[in-house]
Write a protein that binds this DNA or RNA. Structure first.
Length: 586
RNA sequence: GGGCCCGUGGUGUAGUGGCCUAACAUGCCUCCCUGUCACGGAGGAGAUCGCCGGUUCAAAUCCGGUCGGGCCCGCCA
């Protein structure tokens, strides 16, 4: 009878067969032990020369790591002193009688072990070997359980799973598309969907009550540690007859709560998943995805230091900007080189420099202290709440830049100083995103996030004098500083759509050309609807506490968008290109 | 597109002008070993230090370029 390592302890006295890989062979000359690894764990095979025939024993002597074998023998309880609690079948061993060599293996490029990790490059090149590691096996199983957990929840709440096309249309907004040439229509292209956004809205028009899908999304943008290249997964969902984003948030909250607590066994920082406005998030944490597991909030000193003697500060405020500070608790002793590194980081984030002070005997001191009056210095200490031994970092520039710089430093320091408790998950909703934003590069206003959101206040809301003050009914779920979902109450009214684009100077013809299908559909009785798209890879990353998404995906591309194992992308046959009417210039 | 960091036997690291004829761990090969479980013991093979060029009496080490990898900025409806 063929059984698995995890079940073998119940088979004492029986003759069973196990199959798997040789994890290790311990040859004592006369007595040989083999750790056989299957999907469920290890089983120790014991081979005694007097219990097997000679050819079999010789075969055992020839076994090497990762050979694939099938062993038959009797399950024997181990002596108490020989039991090994570290393996799944540690109270027994299989006294081998027969051995079948199912396949040989060349020496591996690295050992299959959770202890000695190779470089990521090597691991990705031989991902199939990396996946043999217990940790990766666990990850794959956990991920399947996570999917099933979510599926049950969605079904229980009356969501219908519907697949949408992978061959879709290029969309003018958003990320760079992956294009696919059409053979039947030379010169035309499909695009892989960045998200099933339009399809799911059309499903609402199609009378679907609630839709969801584990959607593959494709974006041709440069990857990051928390962003996969190419394809990634979203729990794409949409609900009809919903005019208030709070309904969608309330729907997702229990799922997040259960995933964090029951599934991941972690603690939620705030069980109520607080709502924070975009403005609040930016002003207090310098980020639209704040990690609330630690403080270090940005303190605005603009009104206090408007007329201080330090030109860098006073000029920034004079020019309509801000001066803010963060308190790095107990870090007054930070070394010169550490400060230099922080300054480098600040500069990379767009700062001109990084003024700092330290607090000694209740007083703020530093090389720039001489530019401040005693009064200014004590106001700084008072307003920031800094105490002896603390380090103060300043930002002085436009409000946006100061937020970005100090927010970036705050997050970085949170990592460096170990302020992010790995067993706690900070989950919150950031709401009221700006509908329009100033595009500095193009010197014009543009949609803040996407043109499908409903502007708050609807048609009249768009009349606001200051277009940048209009907020969208759009919301992001933030978990441990990662943007983990984005959603919105959608604009289902053609009139508002035309007007929203009109503000940017686009005429009706443009809107019809770009979003014809949606506009048309909306003319035939579109219900109000709202939805969201939680990022499945990223949330799983937070739940399992890793800081690189590639660790939670079976076959990820590397940082250059290359699959090191399959060597994609690759060149194709001339014939294939010819058929598609394509020629390469490089 | 830009910034920073890394590249040394199969794997992971040390070595940052001469003591390097390149060290350590692990893996690999041979032999010994009947209770190990990251078994142990003895011996052995395996690296033109990513590549090209330069500086120097002397380069793994310094400089320039290039290729590959990582992190970040830009970008990411």
């Amino acid at each position: 009878m063929r059984i698995f390592s995890k079940d073998i302890q119940n088979k004492v006295g029986e003759t069973v067969t196990v199959a798997g890989w040789v994890q290790s062979r311990r040859d004592h000359g006369g007595l040989v032990f083999i750790d056989l690894r299957d999907h469920s764990g290890l089983t120790q095979l014991t081979i005694r020369p007097d219990e097997v025939d000679k050819p079999t024993f010789e075969m055992v002597e020839g076994l090497r790591d990762e050979f694939v074998i099938e062993a038959t023998g009797q399950v024997v309880e181990r002596d108490e002193s020989l039991k090994n609690p570290n393996i799944v079948s540690g109270s027994v061993e299989l006294v081998m009688q027969n051995l079948r060599l199912l396949n040989k293996a060349e020496p591996l490029p690295f050992q299959v072990s959770d202890e000695n990790l190779s470089s990521e490059e090597t691991r990705l090149k031989y991902r199939y070997l990396d996946l043999r590691r217990p940790h990766m096996q666990d990850m794959l199983k956990k991920r399947a359980a996570y999917y099933s957990f979510i599926r049950s929840y969605m079904e229980a709440n009356d969501f219908t799973e519907i697949a949408t096309p992978i061959l879709a249309n290029s969309s003018p907004e958003g990320a760079r598309d992956f294009l696919l040439p059409s053979r039947l229509h030379p010169g035309k292209f499909y695009a892989l969907p960045q998200a099933p956004q339009q399809f799911k809205q059309l499903l609402m028009v199609g009378g679907v009550h609630r839709y969801y899908q584990f959607a593959t999304c494709f974006r041709d943008e440069d990857p990051r540690a928390d962003r996969l290249y190419g394809d990634f997964y979203q729990l794409d969902m949409e609900m009809s007859f919903v005019e208030d984003g709070e309904v969608v948030r309330n729907m997702i909250d229990p799922l997040v709560k259960n995933l964090v607590k029951d599934f991941a066994g972690k603690t939620l920082l705030d069980e109520d998943l607080p709502r924070m406005t975009f403005d609040d998030a930016m002003n207090r944490f310098g980020s639209d995805k704040p990690d609330l597991r630690f403080g270090m909030e940005l303190v605005d000193l603009s009104s206090e230091l408007a007329s201080c003697g330090f030109g860098v500060f006073s000029k920034a405020i004079e020019g309509g900007g801000s001066v803010k500070a963060i308190v790095v608790s107990g870090k007054a002793d930070m070394s010169r080189s550490q400060l230099d590194k922080l300054t480098e980081r600040a500069k990379q984030l767009g700062a001109g420099g990084m003024p700092y002070m330290t607090i000694e005997a209740g007083k703020a001191t530093s090389s720039i202290a001489k530019f401040f009056s005693d009064e200014d210095l004590s106001v700084i200490v008072e307003k920031t709440g800094a105490s002896d031994g603390d380090l103060l970092l300043f930002g002085a520039d436009s409000r946006e830049k100061v937020n970005k710089v100090l927010g970036g430093l705050r997050s970085h320091l949170g990592d460096e100083l170990g302020l992010k408790d790995p067993n706690v998950v900070s989950a919150l909703w950031v709401v009221d995103f700006p509908f329009y934003e100033w595009d500095e590069a193009a010197k014009k206003i543009d949609f803040g996030h996407n043109p499908f959101s409903m502007p708050k206040g609807g048609l009249e809301g768009l009349d606001a004098e200051d277009k940048l003050s209009i907020v969208a009914d759009q919301y992001d779920l933030v978990m441990n500083g990662y943007e983990c979902a984005s959603g919105a109450v959608r604009n289902h009214d053609p009139e508002i759509m035309y007007k929203a684009f009109g503000v940017l100077g686009y005429d009706a013809a443009y809107v019809e050309e770009k979003f014809g299908a949606m506009l048309n559909a909306f003319k035939f009785g579109a219900p109000p609807h709202a939805g969201a798209a939680p990022g499945l890879d990223r949330i799983f990353m937070v739940l399992t506490g890793v800081d690189n998404v590639r660790e939670v995906v079976a076959f990820p591309k590397n940082g250059s968008g290359v699959d090191l194992m399959m060597q994609s992308p690759s060149r194709v046959d001339e014939q294939q290109l010819k058929e598609l009417g394509i020629s390469c210039t490089s």
